[in-house]
Structures are given as structure tokens and as C-alpha cells.
Amino acid sequence: MMNKSVTAPARELDEALPFYKPQAREVELFEYGYRHQLPVLIKGPTGCGKTRFINYMAARLGRPVYTVACHDDLSAVDLVGRHLIGDSGTYWSDGPLTRAVREGAICYLDEVVEARKDTTVVLHPLTDDRRILPLERTGEILKAPPEFMLVVSYNPGYQNLLKGMKPSTRQRFVAVRFDFPAPELECEILVGESGIDGETAQRLVRLANAMRALKDHDLEEAASTRLLVYAATLILGGYEPVEACRAALVEPLTDDTETASALMEVVHASLGR
């Protein structure tokens, strides 16, 4: 049960709505999916707001959300639950997926391609019209209530040579693609999220887009909105802007010193010395 974060149910409504700016019609799609019991697949690059979107939607719909960050040792048992040893013998402990099914919550499997292949065994019956979760160990068969919703996400660009989602799994979801927001929107997000002034936000966004142009060519991953928020937070906290960009945008993206110094040139060009 390591490396797994189960967020506390966020039952509080509107006033606790997380900050989120829709990119397209994803909010609508998610609501349709929720109403018609369709599982949703979200794909997009790292740090573009997938997790935030789920939390926002969960708050909007007033459902608790169970987030599971998948890793390559995550097996079906970790999702469904297992027997534990207690004072008076063994007892059954629900995993996050089982708990979400019982409570009619949203279960969010982040980076689902990382999980072991045997997880598909439990995901398949939940994602078609049966909507059941058979608990092999206890002999129970849980029928998912209408409020239960399964959401998975993955990053298609990430190590896609080694990992991919099985087409048979992929075909059970309605899918929505996320990308980095358009510059104006990203500025708003930066301002809204960190509280930085509009002009600095614009410069940061321009810098990020300059660095995104280098993806696949010079960098493996594009500078994410999350990193931009970090940079903005550092700058707002009084950290020197160029150094903040080095710490939040350059060093996290590359280990190669030559590339890093070239990126610093881009930072200098965008922000000034």
C-alpha cells in the first residue's frame, strides 16, 4: 500500500471549489459522463491540470474522490483490498477502488499505464455495462451505484515506447485530451493560482511556450503549467526572477549542463538580466 495517496473526501461544496479554468468543453463532458455512468479517460502531458480538473469536478458534483497514483508495482490487490491480520484473526480491508464503489465516489487512477497488467481484470467489469466489482477473496460481488465513476489518466508522450494502454482497456472509456492552456488562459491561471501580476505572468508564459517549442528536439518534456506556478510562487515570494526560473523551469527539465545553459539564455532573453 505504498506510494498511494487517498485524498480525504471533499464533501464541502461550492465555497471549497478548487481553482480551475476550463480549456474547452471538458466540464460538460465530465458531467455527461457522470450522469450516464460512463468512465472517463483523460490524457495529457505532465502538469497540465488533469488532477486539478478531477478535484474540481468532484467538488462540483459533490462526490468524494479517491485518487490512486499508480506505479509499476501497483496490482489489483492494491486497488481491491486485502486481508489483514488483527487481534482476532484476519479481517478484510477495502482498497480505494472498493471503497469508492461502496460509497458511490469518484475513483481516479492517475497514470494508469504504470499499473500492473492484472489491474485490468478488475477494471474491465467495472467499465462496461455490468458495472460490477467482484471481490474474489471474499466472494462478494459489488454492484456499483449510479454515483460511482471511474476516471483514469495517463500521459501519452511519456515513455510511450515502453508503455501504452491496451486497446481493449482504452476502448471502455470516453476520452478527453488535455494540453497546455492557450497563452491568455495560462496567464489567467498563473494569476489566479499564485497571485502574481499580469505582466510577469505573461513573460513567464511566453518563456514557457518558448521552451515547449523545444520538446522532442532538445527536451524530453515540455515545461508544465505546474512548474510555471512554482516559478511564479517563488518570484512572488521575493526570489530573484531569473534564479526562480532556473530553479523552477530549467533545472527540473534537463540534466545536461549545455542544454541548461542554453535554456538560461532563453530565460535571460525573456526576462532580462
Binding site: 549545455e258 545553459s261 542554453a262 532573453a269
Partner: peptide
């Protein structure tokens, strides 16, 4: 050349 190439592409030059 490497630095310049990256700078050129980052500032919008054709990759």
C-alpha cells in the same frame, strides 16, 4: 552551436 540552436528554436525559430 548547441546553445545557439536551442536558443533559436526556443525563440520561435523553425526546428
Amino acid at each position: 552551436d548547441k546553445t545557439l540552436g536551442i536558443l533559436f528554436r526556443a525563440l520561435g525559430g523553425d526546428g
